[in-house]
Structure formats: structure tokens, C-alpha cells
Amino acid sequence: MFGTGILRIKQAYANEVVQPKFKVEQNCLAIILPVLNVEHDLNDDEWTVLSQFKTDELLSKRQLLVKTDLSSSKLSRVLAKLTTKHFLTKVGAGRATKYHK
């Protein structure tokens, strides 16, 4: 049973909207576990975008435009809100920007 903690945490959050964050540093490991039983105040567009992500998947804005019926400007606003609310993490900058849960 030893050494299964991280795997068990990932399995517990596999189908959830919010995911745990793992921060590994030289002398420590920090795990941030989000609360699961709280109602999220997300609108339909935000749920539509979040539902496109699978666990540990990186998606660009262009990929999300193809998968959703949102306009480019609307998608930009939704991605900014989801990033601010910590549902998504932004990786990279400019044309190379991608997002993940």
C-alpha cells in the first residue's frame, strides 16, 4: 500500500472539473487539493469549454475554436475567466499558448 498516494489522488479527481496541483521542489512536495462539494458558479460557455479537456491534455485556443461554437473573442473571455478562477492553467505565450486543467 506504500507509494500509492499520488496515484490514488489522481484517480479520485479523474472526472472532476477541478484537479489537484502538484508542486515538486528540491526538498519538498506540495499538493493542493481542491474542494469537490462546492457548487461552481460557471455559465454555459464556461462548462462547454471545460468539458473539452481530458486529464493532463493541453489544448490551444485554435483547437478549442474547432471543438466549440464560440467566437474567437468570446472564447478569449471565457479562457481568461477560467484561468482567473483556477479551473485552467495557461502555458506559454502568444501563438504557442495552451491551456490545461
Score class of each variant (00 low, 15 high):
residue 71 S to Y: 04
residue 17 V to D: 14
residue 30 A to P: 05
residue 100 H to N: 13
residue 6 I to Y: 06
residue 31 I to F: 07
residue 21 K to W: 14
residue 7 L to G: 10
residue 85 K to Y: 06
residue 35 V to R: 12
residue 95 R to Q: 13
residue 72 S to M: 08
residue 1 M to C: 07
residue 60 S to L: 04
residue 92 G to K: 02
residue 40 H to I: 08
residue 13 Y to H: 05
residue 47 W to T: 06
residue 19 Q to R: 12
residue 65 L to I: 04
residue 38 V to I: 13
residue 39 E to H: 08
residue 66 V to C: 01
residue 83 T to M: 04
residue 8 R to P: 06
residue 34 P to F: 03
residue 49 V to K: 00
residue 4 T to S: 11
residue 56 D to H: 08
residue 36 L to S: 12
residue 92 G to V: 00
residue 15 N to K: 15
residue 57 E to V: 04
residue 30 A to E: 13
residue 57 E to I: 02
residue 29 L to C: 04
residue 91 V to S: 06
residue 69 D to Y: 07
residue 50 L to I: 03
residue 76 S to M: 08
residue 11 Q to N: 13
residue 32 I to D: 13
residue 51 S to G: 09
residue 15 N to C: 10
residue 45 D to T: 09
residue 61 K to Q: 10
residue 99 Y to H: 02
residue 30 A to N: 11
residue 27 N to S: 13
residue 8 R to D: 10
residue 42 L to W: 03
residue 86 H to S: 12
residue 28 C to L: 15
residue 76 S to A: 12
residue 50 L to R: 05
residue 72 S to N: 14
residue 71 S to A: 07
residue 64 L to A: 03
residue 1 M to S: 09
residue 67 K to M: 07
residue 42 L to S: 05
residue 87 F to K: 02
residue 46 E to W: 05
residue 18 V to K: 14
residue 38 V to R: 09
residue 71 S to H: 05
residue 69 D to G: 12
residue 89 T to V: 09
residue 76 S to V: 07
residue 75 L to M: 05
residue 30 A to W: 07
residue 54 K to T: 07
residue 21 K to E: 15
residue 23 K to N: 09
residue 79 L to E: 02
residue 14 A to F: 12
residue 2 F to D: 12
residue 13 Y to R: 06
residue 47 W to S: 07
residue 73 S to G: 11
residue 76 S to K: 08
residue 25 E to T: 12
residue 100 H to D: 10
residue 65 L to V: 01
residue 47 W to L: 11
residue 34 P to S: 01
residue 62 R to N: 13
residue 69 D to V: 05
residue 67 K to I: 08
residue 40 H to M: 10
residue 5 G to R: 14
residue 42 L to H: 06
residue 72 S to A: 11
residue 65 L to M: 04
residue 25 E to R: 11
residue 32 I to M: 10
residue 86 H to E: 15
residue 9 I to S: 04
residue 19 Q to G: 07
residue 17 V to K: 13
residue 49 V to T: 01
residue 47 W to P: 06
residue 99 Y to M: 05
residue 11 Q to K: 13
residue 54 K to L: 07
residue 7 L to I: 13
residue 4 T to H: 10
residue 10 K to H: 12
residue 91 V to C: 06
residue 5 G to A: 15
residue 84 T to Q: 08
residue 68 T to D: 00
residue 99 Y to W: 06
residue 28 C to Q: 15
residue 88 L to C: 02
residue 79 L to H: 03
residue 55 T to C: 06
residue 35 V to K: 12
residue 88 L to W: 01
residue 23 K to Y: 10
residue 38 V to H: 07
residue 98 K to H: 04
residue 16 E to L: 11
residue 32 I to W: 09
residue 101 K to W: 06
residue 80 A to L: 15
residue 87 F to P: 00
residue 53 F to W: 00
residue 22 F to H: 08
residue 81 K to M: 07
residue 77 R to P: 05
residue 50 L to N: 03
residue 10 K to A: 13
residue 31 I to K: 03
residue 10 K to V: 14
residue 57 E to F: 00
residue 97 T to Y: 00
residue 9 I to E: 03
residue 19 Q to M: 10
residue 39 E to L: 14
residue 49 V to W: 01
residue 97 T to K: 01
residue 85 K to G: 02
residue 48 T to D: 11
residue 97 T to Q: 02
residue 64 L to D: 02
residue 24 V to Q: 13
residue 68 T to P: 01
residue 88 L to N: 00
residue 12 A to N: 13
residue 75 L to A: 03
residue 79 L to R: 01
residue 41 D to M: 08
residue 5 G to N: 14
residue 3 G to K: 01
residue 7 L to H: 08
residue 75 L to Q: 04
residue 99 Y to G: 02
